[in-house]
Design a protein around this nucleic acid. Structure first.
Length: 466
DNA sequence: TGAAATGTTGGGGCG
DNA sequence: ACGCCCCAACATTTC
């Protein structure tokens, strides 16, 4: 009669949970434990939105466990201390957890494994980073060959079903899951595994087939919006990959198939960045490209504040930042546009953007977020070249053609004619008055002139890059 | 998963 | 009819 601890970190689910399955295989009593680690959940990289999403997720998980005869034990503190105490308290002989590859997690788990019986099981990614290398164990640093290798790997195992029953657990103290003050705007993301599964099957049965054509349209719901669930493991990477495979097989037209394959490609980007962070943990603080470590950032604090608040005077940028602040999520195309604007137009260090996104995003993941920021800044692996500067006006016209995305998130521009929606300062003054939006009063004038800013950033990068 | 600058081509207006 | 110019449309180069 062995007792084991199922230590839950970013795997808030009962389906396809390899750590839970391993615990149930080896132990007759399995105690589900979540530890609120202040180093993670009270840090500068987490804001109230993701914390609230986590706490809601814990509540949902606890409810699912109770339906199966168990419950969730929540404790707070340093994981090593908490687990040491718990092992003594419960006589647990093993701790089972899903391996997390972020630098902090690896250091934490390494230390714990020195004194406690910690068994790590894969699951954050479909394949562990050690499998995702070149023949000689060298990591890939370019996406395309990485994805080719990824697609050539042996078939993934099938996702595991949730256990029908969980063993009862002994009387144990558990922290009452704190209630976060309500997030300012009702977040469209309901926490929990059930919601994630519902969204996944909806997506994989219909809009995945239009994904290739609509995924960049900020005014449409063309993306899966599953990232928050993947972030906390309310959905496993393997479940997502299987859904894309099944959709690809069910595809009736080349277009449908392309949609499913394009979405799978995005999942492979996630694995790529997880692997990059595993092999190059220094990217969390430093440019991957050594020759781009001395960019003369301007770091103007007023401009940074305007960017954060969605008050730059560029409608697409402002819509995106306000969407982020209100919902904890931002459309992927908008992430690229806002990141390009911060790093290129404002010449503000990508680390400022990385940190703000980590604070605000429900899906804020150290690997993907860092990868995305370094990609845009041009400092990362397989990154966009430094001279690739997004034009926020053209991007708006292309990917929000009617301006509906702007109108939704920047209501003061709601009545601006489509012709001017992405460059409202070009409206004749009479029109500005007519639509109740005088630029410089109700809505800010652009804080930089894009054409001027573009020349400035090219000058700043020149000489640094090759 | 860019955009601007520069180059080329060809149709049409016009003397 | 012919040559010249203009410029839109597209292609290529450059950042």
């Amino acid at each position: 009669m062995k007792t084991g601890i199922w230590w839950i970190r970013r795997d808030l689910r009962l389906t396809d949970n390899q750590a839970l399955a391993e615990a149930l295989r080896q132990a007759s009593t399995v105690i589900p434990v979540f530890i609120l680690d202040p180093k993670l959940w009270s840090s500068d990289f987490v804001g109230p939105a993701r914390l609230a999403f986590l706490l809601d997720g814990l509540r949902t998980l606890d409810a699912s466990l109770r339906e199966r005869g168990s419950r969730l034990i929540v404790r707070q503190g340093d994981p090593l201390e908490v687990l040491t105490f718990l092992c003594q308290e419960t006589q647990a002989e093993d701790i089972f957890a899903e391996e997390d590859y972020s630098p902090y997690a690896r250091q934490r788990d390494g230390k714990i494994a020195l004194t406690l019986p910690l068994q790590l099981v894969p699951g954050v990614t479909t394949f562990p980073p050690q499998m995702l290398t070149k023949a000689k164990g060298e990591p890939y640093t370019v996406f395309t060959p990485f994805s080719r290798m990824w697609r050539s790997l042996p078939a993934l195992g099938l996702p595991l079903p949730a256990p029908e029953h969980m063993p009862a657990i002994p009387e144990l103290k558990s922290l009452e899951i704190p209630t976060q003050p309500q997030h300012p705007t009702a977040s469209p993301f309901k926490a929990g595994e059930q919601e994630a599964q519902k969204r996944l099957s909806n997506f994989a049965n219909s809009s995945i087939f239009d994904y290739a054509g609509t995924r960049n349209r900020m005014d449409l719901d063309g993306t899966s919006q599953l990232s928050p669930y993947l972030r906390l493991g309310m959905l496993s990477a393997r479940q997502a990959v299987w859904a894309s495979r099944e959709a690809s097989e069910a595809a009736e037209t080349p277009k449908d198939r392309e949609g499913a394959e394009t979405w799978l490609n995005e999942l492979i980007w996630r694995e790529f960045y997880a692997t990059i962070l595993y092999y190059f943990p220094s990217v969390r603080g430093t440019a991957f490209k050594a020759d781009l470590r001395d960019i003369p950032w301007r770091n103007d604090s007023a401009e940074l504040a305007a960017w954060k608040a969605g008050q730059t005077g560029y409608p697409v940028v402002d819509a995106a930042m306000r969407q982020l602040n209100a919902t904890g999520w931002m459309h992927n195309r908008a992430r690229m546009i806002t990141a390009s604007f911060l790093t290129k137009d404002l010449l503000i260090d990508w680390r400022e953007g990385e940190q703000f996104f980590m604070q605000q995003l429900l899906d804020g993941d150290p690997a993907s977020n860092n990868g995305g920021w370094q990609w845009t800044a041009g400092t990362g692996t397989d990154a966009a070249p430094y001279f690739r500067v997004f034009n926020p006006i053209l991007q708006g016209r292309k990917f929000d053609p009617e301006g509906n995305y702007v109108r939704l998130w920047v209501p003061e521009l709601a009545k601006v004619p489509t012709k001017f929606i992405h460059a409202p300062w070009e409206m004749p003054l009479e029109v500005q008055k007519q639509v109740g939006c005088v630029v410089g009063q109700r809505y800010p004038s652009p804080i930089v002139d894009h054409a001027v800013a573009r020349k400035r950033v090219l000058l700043a990068f020149r000489g640094l890059a090759w």
